[in-house]
């Protein structure tokens, strides 16, 4: 019986045996990975895709005529920038020259009535001490007897008095 001999003409790629273990390790690692992603798509997504994309692809864009010629755009932009700058400077000056006395009381009242000033009695007490509260100069027309009575009728509940110790 003739013995099989190793054919000396067979060759392997360079570094094949050196990298063999690494390749096997990677194959084993890979086999443990999930085969599915778990991703799904909405119902009929692929069925409706063809029409959607065809509409989008073949949709002809309307030709847009430029409002200004390119050569004038620079001037327009410069004028716009100057206008914005002047308006902002003018507004800043106006704000800085305003003080509390220049605001009329009707504006302050409507500001508070609109609910923009969210301050309750606790806040006022925290800001002002007893002496300052005593020295406040209320105008008679605001806190007249008539106004106080009206305020009490509207705001004070009978139960407030009952519950008072």
């Amino acid at each position: 019986m003739k013995k099989e001999t190793i054919n000396p003409k067979f060759k392997t790629p360079e570094g094949y045996f050196e990298n063999f273990e690494e390749s096997i390790f990677l194959r084993i690692a890979e086999e443990k990975f999930p085969k599915q992603t778990g991703f799904t798509v909405p119902k009929n997504y692929f069925e409706s895709f063809d029409d959607r994309i065809l509409n989008r692809a073949t949709h002809k864009k309307p030709k847009v005529l430029p409002l200004f010629k390119k050569q004038y755009l620079g001037y327009v932009a410069a004028i716009a920038a100057c206008t914005v700058l002047l308006i902002s400077i003018f507004n800043k000056q106006e704000i800085s020259s305003a003080d509390f006395n220049s605001i009329d009381s009707a504006s302050i009242s409507s500001y508070i009535e609109d609910g923009n000033l969210d301050v309750d009695i606790e806040d006022v007490m925290a800001i002002l001490d007893t002496d300052e509260l005593g020295s406040l100069d209320f105008q008679d027309e605001i806190f007249s007897q008539e106004n106080l009575e009206e305020y009490l009728i509207q705001r004070i509940d009978d139960n407030d008095f009952i519950n008072e110790e």
Partner: peptide, 13 residues
């Protein structure tokens, strides 16, 4: 709602 993978699939992603 368009991912129905389990814990391992999520970790894989």
């Amino acid at each position: 709602v368009y991912f129905e993978g389990d814990k391992i699939q999520l970790l894989f992603q």
